[in-house]
Nucleic acid binder design. Structure first.
Length: 502
RNA sequence: UCCCCGAUAGCUCAAUUGGCAGAGCGAGCGGCUGUUAACCGCUAGGUCGUAGGUUCGAGUCCUACUCGGGGAGCCA
């Protein structure tokens, strides 16, 4: 029997030939004398059809009883068939079971998030997760490629850090041969040193924050890429972030369009991510929040969401009636499953509706001097169809190393980049204070232990120059690009407050 | 740390509002040659999160705790 080993993504080249696939059973459907095996092999899905006849007699019963996620080698002729997922199918001539799986926990039916997170090691195999992590891999590759192709030198910064860079209450403390050290929450200060050697540098690795926040935008361990550039102004740094974000979006649209479509992402919204991004100062953002546009947006939201809740109520009643009435069992089943989805959407909307008056109040009473809250960021980003850079925050709410605005000493030369459609902050960056006296004064004001930062201050003593950089959160970026509401699915093994298994 | 919601079969959810704990999926057995979350019949599967309390009677009401979800603060 002449046969070639191949993978699902290459079937097109083998139509009319016999091939062998190595994979796992994703789903099965059977009838008396025909079995459909949907096999996944890591590169895609392929329907394998086993018909009962003399040729298949030796393994037909085995194939019929194959359980979900059993591993197997399957051999057969490749046919083009539109009825099949992916457009090709295998007319099976041989099946070898590698291992028979029993009682695979994740079924094709819906599961709760807690259950799925506890089965993350298996959840990977589900189609949606497979698409998301493929997008992540492209994003990570493009991050490295963008900087490597533009003359940046990769500097690996330490994960064990001796002291706080930004604030010690959010650090994980580790016992280091009897001394307390902390898991790094940024490599920035180390990068500032390196950029005085290489001019353009970046670091890329995991970052740890012990923030006690349980929200859709937080992880305790996440990946961050941080470029740092010597002789750069704030405006230069924002230019880099623009080109950087555009290159990532463009690359994903080029290489992962199928994944995005499978995830239901609106591609037009991604295509609209083009230079130049919107730039506004913190003060302008504050005016917008207090102004009529923000109010209109939230009031329209309130109307639309209330109306949607009404629609859902009606739909739920209708579905419940279907589920309890006559008709086919599968129709009733489908109706009750849909009703569950509708209830979930309704309770989410109800929470949002409850929060809108509060958000209205926060926005309307926004006071110059406080940081933008999550709801404030959402308002600003939803008013634009491309990313928004909010610049020049009050320096009091920002980190000590940010450069003081020489025209207005209340301000820091910093920016946050907000992703559109309400996804919120994906980048935070700034020009760094290069003046020794200003920096020391600021550190004293914040009661930072100057002696621990002597090495950092040396950078201002020996050839200090204007410089700056930013940090981009990989998971938030992937969530935005994939259109996911929660970032926990964008990292292979999410670490969140109270969660570290598996 | 604070606010809201939840916990019932392996999984997803019901239980007529205090009166005999149920359905689908999954599992097992049987049937069906083109299925797309297939379908049809049968079988097994439960200390209703934990501990107290109210009551003739508690899955349902009250209190505390544990765990989970969502949000606030903080942040990428």
């Amino acid at each position: 029997m002449a046969t070639t080993k191949t993978t699902v993504d290459r079937l097109r080249a083998f139509v009319g030939q016999s091939v062998t696939l190595e994979g796992w059973v994703y789903k099965t459907r059977g009838s008396g004398k025909i079995v459909f095996l949907i096999v996944r092999d890591g590169t895609g899905l392929c329907q394998c059809v086993v018909e009962k006849n003399d040729e298949t007699a030796s393994f037909f019963e085995t194939a019929k009883k194959l359980s979900q996620e059993s591993s197997l080698e399957v051999t057969g002729d490749v046919l083009a068939d539109e009825r099949s997922v992916g457009g090709f199918e295998l007319k099976v001539s041989h099946v070898r079971v590698v291992q028979s799986a029993a009682d695979y926990p994740i079924t094709p039916k819906p599961h709760g998030i807690d259950f799925l997170m506890k089965h993350r090691h298996l959840w990977f195999r589900s189609h949606r997760q497979w698409h998301i992590l493929r997008v992540r891999a492209t994003v990570v590759d493009q991050i490295r490629r963008f900087f490597n192709d533009d003359g940046y030198v990769l500097i690996d910064t330490p994960i064990f850090a001796p002291a706080a860079c930004e604030g010690s209450q959010t650090l994980f403390q580790v016992d280091y041969f009897g001394d307390p050290v902390y898991l790094a929450q940024t490599g920035q200060l180390y990068l500032e040193a390196a950029c005085m050697s290489h001019r353009k540098v970046y670091c890329f690795g995991p970052t740890f924050r012990a923030e006690k926040s349980k929200t859709r935008r937080h992880l305790t361990e996440f990946w961050m890429v941080e470029p740092e550039i010597a002789y750069a102004s704030l405006s230069d740094v924002i230019d880099v972030s623009e080109a950087f974000i555009c290159s990532i979006v463009e690359r994903v649209l080029r290489d992962n369009k199928d994944d995005l479509v499978a995830l239901g992402r609106n591609l037009d919204e991604l295509c609209a991510v083009q230079k130049p991004f919107v730039r506004m100062t913190y003060s302008e953002a504050a005016d917008i929040l207090r102004g009529p546009k923000a109010k209109e947006l939230l009031e329209r939201d309130l109307e639309e969401k209330t109306a949607r809740i009404g629609e859902l109520d009606a739909k739920i009643d209708e579905l419940d009636a279907t589920a309890k009435g006559g008709g086919k069992q599968w129709q009733k089943d489908k109706a009750s499953a849909e009703a569950i989805d509708c209830r979930e959407e309704r309770s989410e909307l109800e929470e949002q509706v409850r929060n809108i008056p509060h958000h209205l109040e926060l926005a309307a009473n926004f006071e110059w001097g406080s940081d933008l809250g999550g709801s404030d960021e959402t308002i600003i980003s939803r008013l634009h169809d491309r990313p928004v850079a909010v610049t020049h925050y009050p320096k009091a709410v920002k980190a000590f190393y940010m450069r003081e605005d020489r025209n207005d000493d209340r301000l820091a030369e910093c920016f946050d980049l907000l992703a559109p459609q309400g996804f919120g902050e994906i980048i935070g960056g700034s020009a760094r204070e290069e003046d020794l006296d200003r920096l020391v004064a600021r550190m004293k004001h914040e009661n930072l232990p100057i002696e621990d930062y002597e090495w950092y201050l040396d950078l201002r003593r020996y050839g200090s120059v204007p410089h700056g950089g930013f940090g981009l959160g990989v998971e938030r970026t992937v969530a935005w690009i994939c259109g996911l509401k929660h970032i926990r699915e964008t990292i292979p093994y999410a670490r969140m407050m109270g969660k570290f298994y598996p």
